[in-house]
């Protein structure tokens, strides 16, 4: 089994620092997502792991073996790219077979592996089509089958869903997750899409300016962000001033404890779903915008000069419209908050 350790990686492009003291461990069989805005270094980290870029400092080990200076073809990795990367002159089956031939697999073994992979990725009926005859989703599934063909130690996914339309993206995302679990391959998935990262990963690492800001399971990342950046990048957050109240804090007229705090922080990170909105003609707050999202309704409320975003259950919501007077409060089930910055 292959545990990946990237430690103390530094990479500069000219005067731009792409990664500085970047350290990441991926447990054997784990799926880790690197999430961050463009230019945060997530793709560079993946390309260094793939061997496409050489780190200026630091080491990369896989399964205890130092591969920092091992060239890409000898790493035995599989990779799916954002752009369609199937060889246009080969059918789906031939693309998968090409990977196996390069690993010197015998022809009987090749056929077994191909049939199994086409089955796993649901491609059997499309196997003999050329890439230009396939849909985007089919192409990426062939790319996934091809990446898994040589039984790689590590699977690298570089925004594999970004070129697809929304519906295909969701179903392929689930499929990647299922196949990855089934095969148990250690996987690094790079994306800028937080929903994708939260939905698919065992752990999500949020990156900013060449550093790993925080790496945690999706729920912990969402509920216990370490920094204002993580809180703001993962999900939507309201920054609401909090006043000291003994050893507790006062937020939106409720006394709550702080589950997490940064030194000197007085701004609470409140998620839209933690805010309740009561329709009240005598209220001090004003509805600015109402967006119906099906089960939820998203309200933008003017609260003492600042703007708050609240997601309320449509079924519980009183049906205020733009300009109505309301009163915002913390939901009753919120008893701990996260303080993020001063």
């Amino acid at each position: 089994m292959a545990k990946v350790i990237m430690s103390g990686i530094r990479k500069e492009f000219g005067s731009t620092v792409a990664l500085s003291d970047f350290t990441l461990e991926i447990e054997s069989g784990e799926l880790v997502c690197l999430l961050g805005p463009s230019g945060c270094g997530k793709t560079t980290a993946l390309r260094i792991l793939a061997g496409f870029e050489k780190a200026d400092a630091g080491t990369v080990t896989v399964g205890g073996e130092d591969i920092t200076y091992v060239p890409t073809p000898k790493r035995n990795f599989g990779m799916v790219f954002q752009e369609y990367s199937l060889f246009p002159n080969m059918t789906g089956r031939e693309n998968v077979e090409f990977a196996l031939k390069l690993r010197k697999a015998g022809s009987a073994e090749r056929k077994d592996t191909i049939d199994r992979l086409l089955e796993v990725t649901g491609l059997t009926p499309h196997a003999d089509k050329f890439p230009h005859q396939m849909s985007g989703g089919q192409r990426q599934r062939v790319a996934l089958a091809r990446a898994l063909a040589s039984n790689p130690r590590v699977l690298l996914l570089d925004e594999p869903l970004s070129a697809l339309d929304a519906k295909v993206r969701d179903s392929l995302r689930e499929e990647i997750r299922r196949v990855q679990r089934e095969i148990g391959v250690t996987t690094l998935f790079v994306t800028h899409d937080q929903h994708e990262a939260l939905a698919i990963a065992d752990r999500v690492g949020v990156m900013s300016h060449g550093r790993l800001e925080q790496i945690d399971p999706p729920r912990a990342l969402y509920e216990q962000p370490d920094s204002a950046f993580v809180a703001g990048f993962v999900g939507t957050v309201n920054r609401i001033p909090a006043q000291v109240d003994g050893d507790r804090w006062r937020v939106l007229n409720r006394s709550v404890s702080a589950s997490q705090t940064v030194d000197g922080a007085t701004l609470a990170a409140i998620r839209p779903e933690q805010i309740a909105v009561d329709v009240d003609a005598a209220g001090d707050d004003t509805v600015r915008e109402v967006v119906f999202l099906g089960p939820l309704t998203r309200l933008t409320v003017d609260h003492g000069g600042s703007t708050l975003i609240a997601d309320v259950l449509t079924s519980e919501f009183g049906g205020a419209t733009m300009g109505d007077r309301v009163r915002v409060r913390l939901r009753d089930d919120v008893d701990a908050i996260v303080l993020i910055e001063g």
Binding site: A50, F52, P73, K74, F77, M79, F81, S85, A99, L102
Partner: peptide, 9 residues
């Protein structure tokens, strides 16, 4: 790059 990862020269 895709072919490189697969081990091609």
């Amino acid at each position: 790059e895709a072919a490189r990862v697969m081990g091609a020269s």
